[in-house]
Design a binder for these strands. Structure first.
Length: 597
DNA sequence: GCCGTTTTCGGCCCGACTGTTTTCAGTCG
């Protein structure tokens, strides 16, 4: 089962499309130049999607992916239907499979990979990587035209680093990347020549996972800024160094790219390296229609003479305004319509961390004898921190008491005692309200893990899937909707069940889920836990189009986790959510109306 | 191969850095 699933996952489809582009690059790059670009672009798009192309096809929505036109759709449909795409198989005949294996190694592109495979006849895909390394060690590669001693040692090092896991496809979860970046930024700020430091790239756009760390620096003395950067104690190796850029590998394996510009031209730099690539291409095409050419240096008129000096901008706002656009929040820069909205001055006002008035998914250390993991911090500690964060309410949502280890009467007794304890907390604390909630398992049957009297001690429940992930889409959707049907079930937590970099998620029919939630006034959770960030941003955007509302929660199991809220907010922002889409931006009296109705 | 506020034909973002060259090709973002 797994092998078939894997074959149709986005990552595999992206790799397939990338291989098509590579084949064109090898066989006839002049004739197939624009096909090559089109396939590479399509590959990037698929790699970045959080919805599965395969699912879109099953829902008859495969024609809704920008960058994948009629021809590619036909090939993919053939692939999904029959297991192979004839056109792709035919063109792959021109290139040994081992070439595609080498493409996963950083610094290996189509030309280099093909040349090595061809010259040394390395046609075994299972051994090709070690074969290349052995040949390099023997000194054979340096003898080839276009290669030399330096590139030969670079090849050996690239392979070694790749084997250690520093590949093109390894990504870090956002909060982890943010932490590494913050340390580096604090270090960079120690230098007098560095006026301003920013995160760029997917880190600034707050994507759920981040590949390289991109950092920009405003400085009138780039040389000093770059040498300070290269002297960072945690650098394991310099990758490259130029007058305005430098790249290094850190000890932990993360790559950092640094860009420097003087303060008066800093706006264009920020814009360019924040990306995304697709956003920048859209932006430049938009500007070209106004006869303007954009680059990381600024804006110049599009003429045949290349000696025009680019007009500089100190801020990003001025850069966007100069081409007739409103400033676009980084989270929206994915080429999903933001340029059109900015040109019509109709971008949404995105929800912000400061709009959040409470957190409804908190696991305290209250002895509830739960079915799953329990929290580390007391309710009192978490309420105190909640007040510090400016919250009006905290919802305690421990896992339901384990049903295998307790009788119904015991469960009722535990929940009753907990309810009285929470009431007592509320009577002695007028600054922040505590709600009695419960993260309740939806059992494979669709039944909830508690019933009857237990509900009398709960303001509402959050429902979730914690077992038997392998059900098919239809069964799983039925299971979730049945659980969500209970009058007190108000929030569906971490709806896809994905764990970033670990496991995909279970299958759900989100058309049905969203329609149901809208009809019965149920909310969907945006879970801020670093490995979850679930519901994913693209599904958030889709849910909003159904009119579904959200609650952004941290799923804290410790008081320190309560600070993760900003990452959940970033998911909402990437899904184009305003504060009106987020229920826990409501003040307590409004929120409790929704909870109780 | 994709796409549409000059277009269903005729365009397709813009530049940095490295290594191998002696003016450029390859890779990357």
């Amino acid at each position: 089962m797994m092998s078939k699933m894997t074959k149709f996952e986005n990552h595999s489809i992206a790799k397939l499309l990338r291989n098509v582009a590579a084949t064109y690059a090898i066989t006839n790059p002049k004739k197939f130049y624009f096909q090559m670009i089109a396939y590479q672009k399509a590959s990037d798009i698929v790699e970045g999607m959080t919805v599965q192309v395969y699912d879109l096809w099953k829902e008859n929505k495969i024609d809704q992916i920008p960058g994948i036109g009629k021809t590619m759709q036909e090939h993919l449909i053939e692939l999904f239907t029959t297991g192979k795409a004839t056109h792709f198989e035919n063109i792959f005949k021109e290139v040994p499979e081992s070439v595609f294996i080498l493409l996963d190694i950083p610094t290996f592109g189509p030309k280099k990979a093909y040349k090595l495979v061809k010259e040394f006849n390395l046609i075994n895909p299972k051994t090709v990587i070690s074969d290349v390394k052995n040949i390099a060690k023997k000194g054979e590669i340096a003898k080839l035209e276009g290669f030399g001693e330096k590139s030969q040692t670079d090849i050996i090092r690239s392979i070694d680093e790749f084997k250690k896991g520093a590949g093109k496809t390894t990504r870090m979860v956002l909060p982890y990347a943010s932490e590494i970046a913050e340390k580096l930024i604090n270090y960079l700020k120690e230098n007098k020549d560095i006026k301003q430091v920013n995160t760029l790239g997917s880190l600034r756009r707050m994507r759920s996972t981040v590949g390289d760390l991109d950092i920009s620096v405003a400085s009138s003395n780039p040389k000093s800024a770059i040498s300070h950067f290269l002297a960072y104690p945690y650098v394991s190796r310099k990758i490259e160094e130029g007058p305005t850029t430098a790249s290094v590998l850190l000890n932990g394996g993360a790559q950092v790219d640094l860009m420097v510009q003087p303060p008066d031209a800093y706006g264009a730099l920020l814009q360019h390296f924040t990306g995304s690539k697709a956003h920048n291409i859209k932006l430049r095409e938009f500007a070209l229609k106004k006869n303007l050419s954009l680059s990381e240096y600024g804006i110049r008129p599009k003429t045949n003479k290349s000696n025009d000096v680019a007009k500089h901008f100190d801020t990003e706002e001025k850069f966007y305004n100069a081409i007739g656009l409103d400033w676009i929040p980084p989270e929206l820069r994915e080429d999903t319509g933001e340029v059109e909205f900015a040109s019509k001055h109709s971008l949404p006002t995105l929800v912000e961390l400061k709009n959040i008035k409470g957190d409804l998914h908190i696991h305290s250390s209250y002895p509830i004898e739960p079915s799953h993991d329990m929290g580390n911090s007391t309710m009192e500690t978490m309420l105190t921190l909640g007040k510090k964060l400016g919250y009006e309410y905290i919802g305690f949502s421990e896992h339901n008491p384990s049903s295998s280890k307790h009788t119904k009467t015991q469960v009722n007794t535990i929940l009753k005692k907990r309810f009285e304890f929470i009431e007592q907390l509320n009577s002695s604390n007028k600054y922040i309200r505590a709600l009695s909630l419960l993260e309740t398992d939806i059992l494979p049957s669709g039944k909830l893990a508690i019933d009857g009297e237990a509900f009398d001690y709960l303001d509402a429940i959050l429902v979730s899937i914690h077992s038997v992930f392998s059900m098919n889409k239809k069964e799983m959707t039925k299971r979730v909707l049945e659980g969500l049907s209970h009058k007190k079930a108000k929030i569906l937590t971490h709806p896809t069940g994905r764990l970033l970099t670990t496991r995909p998620g279970y299958e759900l029919d989100f058309d049905e889920i969203f329609t149901f939630c809208k009809k019965f006034n149920k909310a969907i959770e945006i879970n801020s836990w670093p490995q979850r960030l679930d519901l994913p941003d693209t599904l958030v955007k889709e849910a909003i189009s159904y009119g579904v509302q959200f609650v952004i929660n941290t799923d804290s199991h410790d008081a320190t986790h309560m600070n993760l809220m900003k990452y959940g907010v970033s998911v909402a922002r990437r899904g184009w959510a305003t504060k009106h889409d987020i229920l826990n931006t409501l003040p307590y009296n409004k929120l409790i109306e929704w909870i109780r109705n």
